[in-house]
């Protein structure tokens, strides 16, 4: 069997505002648009993914928060409505998705062999989190690829950012091994923002872009520092500085997604493709892609 491989790794933030702004038929809320810098960036990355041959998307989400180990979706189909608990006015999305259970189980087994506490999620009433839905919708609006969702084990809160780095890196290694043995071509997705301080008030018209800006300049400077390192191919350094970054900007990197993804890709030293950066209700969001193929890697922005 041909060895499986990771064909791309995407940092894909999941503010539900972006789906709301797109007005897809699956979402009940209606908008007049907004956040175009991110949405157009997502559209360009989605077009790139269309040109890549792959079998499944594996997504690590901070909105399936587990305290007892790392959990994996373990049923072939989920169909329900995802309502964002924080922004229900924006996101009430009817989803119908397929899961690559074989790949999910293989990654779970590999993680268990690494000593990571794991659990398969096989309750048919389980509601898939809105981070998964948002990132997957924006990267693949046709939903024509099966996914695997991996939960975020809350190591940063329970122990420390350093423990999270150790655990998420080990999980990434295990997932990479399982992907290689599966023979499948896989897109990895870390679903989260960078800086993550929200405004606690919302504009009367949420998509009123005259009200949108980063929460404070410090968050912006930190975000730009991280983005610059991504551009330079310094992924190992991004992880090294992550404890400070996470603490200083309340960054959503605390969930472990980017660490997991870069760990699975062996901490690449090639530049990340940057597709856009914009704030959403004060948080900092970058869309980035690590393309391991030298022939198709682009300088996007």
């Amino acid at each position: 069997m041909t060895k499986g491989q990771i064909v791309a790794g995407c940092l894909a933030p999941h503010p539900p505002h972006l789906v709301y702004a797109d007005n897809p038929p699956q979402n009940e809320a209606y908008s007049e648009g907004g956040w175009e810098t991110l949405r157009w960036g997502y559209q360009r990355l989605a077009r790139k993914l269309k040109d890549i041959d792959y079998d499944a998307i594996v997504i690590f989400t901070p909105h399936w928060q587990t305290y007892i180990g790392t959990h994996f979706l373990g049923l072939p189909e989920f169909s329900s409505k995802s309502v964002d608990p924080v922004f229900p006015n924006l996101f009430r999305y009817n989803y119908d998705l397929k899961v690559d259970v074989e790949l999910s189980e293989a990654m779970r087994d590999a993680a268990s062999q690494e000593g990571i506490i794991t659990k398969m999620m096989r309750n048919p009433h389980f509601r898939v989190d809105y981070g998964t839905i948002t990132s997957c919708h924006l990267l693949n609006p046709e939903w024509d690829k099966p996914i695997v969702t991996i939960s975020s084990n809350r190591n940063t809160h329970y122990y420390s950012p350093e423990v999270m780095i150790e655990q998420a890196t080990a999980l990434g290694r295990a997932c990479a091994k399982a992907i290689e043995e599966s023979g499948k071509r896989v897109v990895l997705v870390a679903s989260h923002s960078l800086s993550h301080r929200h405004f606690v008030e919302e504009a009367p018209l949420p998509e009123d872009m005259s009200k949108e800006h980063i929460y404070n300049h410090s968050q912006y400077v930190w975000d730009m520092k991280i983005v610059e390192m991504m551009r330079q191919g310094k992924s190992r350094e991004v992880i090294d500085i992550m404890p400070e970054f996470t603490e200083q900007t309340i960054a959503e990197t605390e969930g472990g997604g980017l660490i997991w993804m870069l760990g699975a890709m062996g901490f690449p030293d090639f530049p990340a493709e940057i597709y856009g950066y914009q704030s959403v209700i004060g948080t900092g969001n970058v869309i980035a892609c690590w393309d391991p193929n030298d022939d198709t890697r682009e300088y996007v922005l």
């Binding site: 587990t66 007892i68 959990h71 924080v86 309750n123 389980f126």
Partner: peptide
Amino acid sequence: IIGHQIQALENAVWTHVDDDFHY
């Protein structure tokens, strides 16, 4: 996050599953 939310749906019906204890 956006201030304080207050549940007001007169008849709230669903089937809930816990993130950790789904089993």
